[in-house]
Design a protein around this nucleic acid. Structure first.
Lengths: 98, 98
DNA sequence: TTAGCATATGTTATAAATAACATATACTTA
DNA sequence: TAAGTATATGTTATTTATAACATATGCTAA
C-alpha cells in the first residue's frame, strides 16, 4: 500500500464537516438537502465534502429521482470509530477533556 | 467523545513525516538521532512530530541516558493499519494505483 | 563545573486545505 | 421542451498546517 493512500484516508476524515456528515449518516441514509438542513451547511460545501467521502469509499450513493441518497460504509466506519474511542479513552484522557 | 478528539486523532496521522516515523517504529524502537538518519529528516522536524505523536498516544518514550527511545503503540496502530489496508483494498482500488 | 552531545520548543515564512461563490448538469413535471 | 428543483463542479480568497530556523534544556563525562 502506498503511503499516499493513508494520507487520503486520514486527510478525508480530518475535517469537521466531513466528520459531522459521517456522524449524521450513522443515523440513516440522507439526501443532500437533508444533510444541508440538519447540519446547517451550505449546499456546495456539503456536495464537495460528500464527493471526497465517496471517492474514499466512506459513503455510497444511489439515485432516487433527482435526489441522491447517501449512506454510510458501516463496514469500515463502525470498527474505525470503536478503535478510536478505545484508543482515546485509554491513552488520551486529558486531551478528550479539552 | 468530543468531535475535536477525532480531528486530533486523524490530523495527527494525516502527515507524510509522522506516517514515516510510525512505519519506521513498526520495525522496532529508535532514538531521535536514528529516526533522523534513517528518514533523512531535520532533527527539529522529527522532534516536533514525535511530540505530536506522543500527545496522541501513538508512541511512547523512555529515557536512556541523554537519549530518548521512542516506541510504537502497537495496540492501536496494528489494528488501525489492518483496517485501512482492508478498506482501501476493497473500496479504493483505483486510488491506490495513483 | 564546563564542554559536548541529544533532544525539545518558540517562532514564522511558506505551502496546503477549506469554504463559499458562481455556474453547470441532470432529473422531473407541466 | 421549458421551467423548476436537486446536486455537482471550477475557481479562489482566506484560513490553517507545515517545516525549518534559532535557541533552550537536559544529560554525560572529563
Amino acid at each position: 500500500m502506498l503511503k499516499e493512500t493513508y494520507s487520503i484516508f486520514f486527510g478525508t476524515l480530518d475535517n469537521k464537516y466531513r466528520f459531522k456528515i459521517i456522524s449524521l449518516l450513522r443515523e440513516g441514509s440522507k439526501n443532500v438537502t437533508q444533510i444541508c438542513k440538519v447540519l446547517n451547511m451550505n449546499q456546495t460545501t456539503v456536495s464537495h465534502n460528500l464527493a471526497r467521502l465517496k471517492t474514499c469509499g466512506f459513503v455510497f450513493v444511489r439515485n432516487d429521482g433527482n435526489e441522491r441518497i447517501y449512506s454510510l460504509n458501516s463496514r469500515t466506519i463502525k470498527p474505525l470509530m470503536k478503535l478510536i474511542d478505545e484508543h482515546m479513552g485509554t491513552y488520551c484522557k486529558k486531551l478528550c477533556k479539552c
